[in-house]
Computed example of a mutant assay.
Amino acid sequence: MNSIAVLGSANMDLVVRQSRLPRPGETIFGAGFSTVPGGKGLNQAVAAARLGEAVNFLGAVGADAYGSELRALMLAEGIRSDGLAIADAPTGTAHISVVDSGENSIVVVSGANAAVTTLSEAQRAAITESAFLVMQCELPISVLVEGIAAAHAAGVFTVLTPAPVMPLPEGFLASVDLVVPNQIEAAELTGESDPVRAAEVLSADQTWAIVTLGSEGSVVAYDGEVLGLAPARPVTAVDTTAAGDTFVGALVARLAAGYVRGTAVSPDEMIEAVRFATVASSIAVTRAGATSSMPTRDEVEAILV
């Protein structure tokens, strides 16, 4: 079984369900509150692990109750935590408002995640022994740059979710093997409002790019050329929190099945992985929460049959 190293954030999500977002200065009543383990990194790690792949999580939590709960989740999901540091800072939190339509707004307080500015020896070792390195932008960019360099030196396939969007070093995106932004992120990164054109730009120089479009599917491109539009699976959304993270975790889990480190991913393999990930994320949005909404391999394959 191939190993997936996830270099990313681990947060506790503080989720309020409400009918609508309040106007500036307005107070409204919420319909419910819950705490759910999350963070883009941990979300993607759980999604991949729940789909049957070996996952190693690299990041940091605080020495507090939230940190203990996140570590317990990793243990329960079978996720290795060789590269998980205990930082002298509170565990990161995400403050999420979910409205009746299922859409959400999120404010992240980085906490311990901000302490991961350079790779530890344990994190570097975990990357070099893996087949895939999965990253997001909720950690400092300095450690992502180090992660990519370590991965490339070892022939490890790199995957980036460029969220939240922020200024990136020149050539950073081109150094990633696969970039998976949503439509808004792709437009911000490229200046192209057309997701097809944005995918073409992001996939230049032999990079894979998948621009996700929510209920409209996703655009798949490689080396400056769009290969096609993958349709979405129609469902009634309850909560879209972590839908994108479920997509990425499932995508990499599918690619990892039978993958030989250092080899190229074929168009057929990528399109099949996108199909698998589309089903996984469609299941997740029909349930509440982040990690709590993610499906198992059996659930995804039952729909694919």
Rank of each mutant, 00 (worst) to 15 (best):
N2Q: 12
A5V: 10
G8R: 02
G8K: 03
S9M: 06
S9H: 05
N11G: 03
N11I: 06
L14V: 11
R20Q: 14
E26G: 13
F29I: 13
V46F: 04
A48M: 12
G52H: 02
A54M: 11
V55C: 08
N56V: 12
L58T: 09
G59F: 00
D64F: 12
D64A: 12
S68L: 13
L70D: 00
R71P: 00
A72P: 07
L73P: 00
G78N: 12
L84E: 01
A87E: 03
A87K: 02
T91E: 10
T93A: 04
A94Q: 04
H95W: 13
I96Y: 07
S97M: 10
V99T: 15
D100M: 11
S101A: 05
S101V: 07
E103Y: 02
V108S: 05
V108Y: 08
S110L: 14
A115Q: 14
T117E: 15
T118W: 10
Q123P: 02
L133N: 05
M135L: 12
M135C: 15
M135A: 09
V143I: 14
A149E: 15
A149Y: 06
A151C: 06
F157E: 02
L160K: 06
P162A: 04
A163M: 01
P167F: 05
G171A: 13
A174W: 09
D177Q: 12
L178E: 02
V180A: 05
Q183N: 09
Q183C: 11
I184N: 11
S203F: 00
S203P: 05
T207Q: 13
A209K: 05
A209D: 10
G214H: 06
G214D: 07
S215Q: 14
S218P: 00
V220W: 02
L227P: 08
G228E: 00
L229Q: 14
A230Y: 00
V235Q: 01
T236I: 09
T236E: 15
V238C: 10
V238S: 10
G244K: 03
G244I: 01
F247W: 13
A250N: 11
A250G: 13
V252I: 15
L255Q: 00
L255R: 02
R261D: 09
V265W: 09
S266V: 08
D268S: 14
I271K: 12
A273S: 04
A273H: 02
A277H: 02
A277K: 02
A280L: 01
S281E: 04
S282G: 04
T286D: 03
S293N: 00
D298P: 07
